[in-house]
Amino acid sequence: MRVFPVYAPKLIVKHARIFLTGVIWVKDLGRLEFEKGRFLLPRKSLPKVKQAILELNELIEAQN
């Protein structure tokens, strides 16, 4: 598990694309899981977490 002390979308996306499957922890967002290079949306999450995951997945799609 990698810990990101700040929310840096480009760096987080780079990590997810390299490792494809895993878990990261982002300060103020908490634990985020990714599989096959995409972030998974938890069943229950705060609106800011949901927005961050959608933003990260959009960045991943834009890079493909």
Results as ranks from 00 to 15, higher is better:
residue 1 M to R: 14
residue 2 R to Q: 15
residue 2 R to K: 14
residue 2 R to T: 15
residue 2 R to C: 15
residue 3 V to T: 12
residue 4 F to S: 01
residue 5 P to W: 15
residue 7 Y to T: 00
residue 7 Y to G: 01
residue 8 A to M: 14
residue 8 A to V: 11
residue 8 A to P: 00
residue 9 P to L: 02
residue 9 P to S: 03
residue 9 P to D: 02
residue 10 K to Y: 12
residue 11 L to H: 08
residue 11 L to K: 06
residue 11 L to A: 11
residue 12 I to S: 03
residue 12 I to N: 02
residue 14 K to I: 12
residue 15 H to L: 04
residue 15 H to A: 04
residue 15 H to D: 02
residue 15 H to T: 04
residue 16 A to G: 02
residue 16 A to L: 05
residue 16 A to T: 11
residue 16 A to F: 02
residue 16 A to E: 01
residue 18 I to E: 12
residue 18 I to H: 14
residue 18 I to P: 01
residue 18 I to V: 12
residue 18 I to T: 10
residue 19 F to T: 13
residue 20 L to N: 07
residue 20 L to E: 12
residue 21 T to R: 10
residue 21 T to A: 10
residue 24 I to D: 00
residue 24 I to A: 04
residue 24 I to P: 00
residue 25 W to F: 08
residue 26 V to N: 00
residue 26 V to E: 00
residue 26 V to F: 01
residue 27 K to V: 14
residue 27 K to I: 10
residue 27 K to R: 04
residue 28 D to C: 15
residue 28 D to M: 12
residue 29 L to M: 09
residue 30 G to S: 01
residue 31 R to C: 14
residue 32 L to H: 01
residue 32 L to Q: 00
residue 32 L to W: 01
residue 33 E to K: 15
residue 33 E to P: 07
residue 34 F to S: 00
residue 34 F to G: 01
residue 34 F to K: 00
residue 35 E to K: 13
residue 35 E to N: 12
residue 36 K to Y: 08
residue 36 K to E: 12
residue 38 R to T: 09
residue 39 F to D: 06
residue 39 F to G: 04
residue 39 F to N: 04
residue 39 F to Q: 07
residue 40 L to Q: 10
residue 40 L to K: 14
residue 40 L to I: 08
residue 41 L to R: 11
residue 42 P to L: 09
residue 42 P to F: 09
residue 44 K to D: 08
residue 44 K to N: 06
residue 44 K to P: 05
residue 44 K to E: 05
residue 46 L to Y: 13
residue 47 P to Q: 13
residue 47 P to I: 10
residue 47 P to G: 09
residue 48 K to T: 07
residue 48 K to Q: 08
residue 48 K to L: 07
residue 48 K to G: 06
residue 48 K to F: 05
residue 49 V to N: 03
residue 49 V to G: 02
residue 50 K to C: 09
residue 50 K to R: 13
residue 50 K to Q: 08
residue 50 K to T: 07
residue 50 K to E: 06
residue 50 K to H: 07
residue 51 Q to A: 11
residue 51 Q to H: 12
residue 51 Q to C: 11
residue 52 A to V: 07
residue 53 I to T: 06
residue 53 I to N: 00
residue 53 I to F: 03
residue 55 E to D: 07
residue 55 E to V: 06
residue 55 E to F: 09
residue 55 E to I: 05
residue 55 E to C: 06
residue 56 L to T: 00
residue 56 L to S: 00
residue 57 N to W: 03
residue 57 N to H: 02
residue 60 I to R: 03
residue 62 A to Y: 10
residue 63 Q to A: 13
residue 64 N to T: 11
